[in-house]
Design a protein around this nucleic acid. Sequence first.
DNA 1: TCGATCCTGTAG
DNA 2: CTACAGGATCGA
Length: 269
Amino acid sequence: MPELPEAEYMVRRLAECAPTTKIQSLTILRPSLVAPQSPDELTATVAGRKVLGYARRAKNVLLHLDHGWSLRVQLGMTGHFFWIPDSRQLPRFTRLWFALPHHAAFVFEDSRTFGNLHLHRTEDLPTVFASYGPEPLDPAFTWQHLQASAARAHGPVKPFLLDQSKLVGLGNIWAAESLFAARLAPHRPLPSLTAPEWKALHKAIRQTLSAAIANTFRVTASAEEFPEADLLACRVYGRVGQPCRRCRQPIARFVQAGRSTFHCPNCQL
DNA sequence: TCGATCCTGTAG
DNA sequence: CTACAGGATCGA
């Protein structure tokens, strides 16, 4: 499920709920999610360690521990990582959980089990992420960087936006929403994009992601839990057949690289 | 660069 | 029952 905004939200919530804490033990209910590490070895390495802080890289949630190791949570399609006050009330799809003081817990809930959890030396993290493209919300990230990452690339613009080696953080929803905001058709060939269009796309991506982070906080402040797609105020994603919020023409859906693409055929050019 | 695939759940 | 699901990876 989660893309950059949801991963960012999880990290900020963790920092609020448990700025630092001690991991007492780890319970792995689904060993395949930590493979190839053995559950026992992983448990031995983290049990008794203190969590010093949290970070996000691309769609990964990172927990930095006090002995030079970091846990990396890859959320996959349906993963959530969060703090709960009472480990006696674990959510339905809990796949593993960390016992914390006073019965609190970190929970990894992942119905579809595409997520995973890995342990790395903290100093090795740059190597782990070596194949990743730039962070779109990095202040140093310019539209020229975006354009440059597409140099020599062919094919349509939307699959490009999903390619984490070109640019991290976008998934199927926010790629579609960014293209809508930039008024660009998802099937536009990369070489056809003009400089003003790259500029517009860059702006659209940053605004879309920033707004999505803010909106996740706004929605969850009242509703609790993680927001469903229909609560995220999408302008095209999942809205096939419904009127475009800009021009009232029906939103269309087609399949691109095996994924659903939603767009307005009338006002995305 | 595309398609298949991992696995489980939900909606129609 | 079938279709579909916000991700990542591998092989041709």
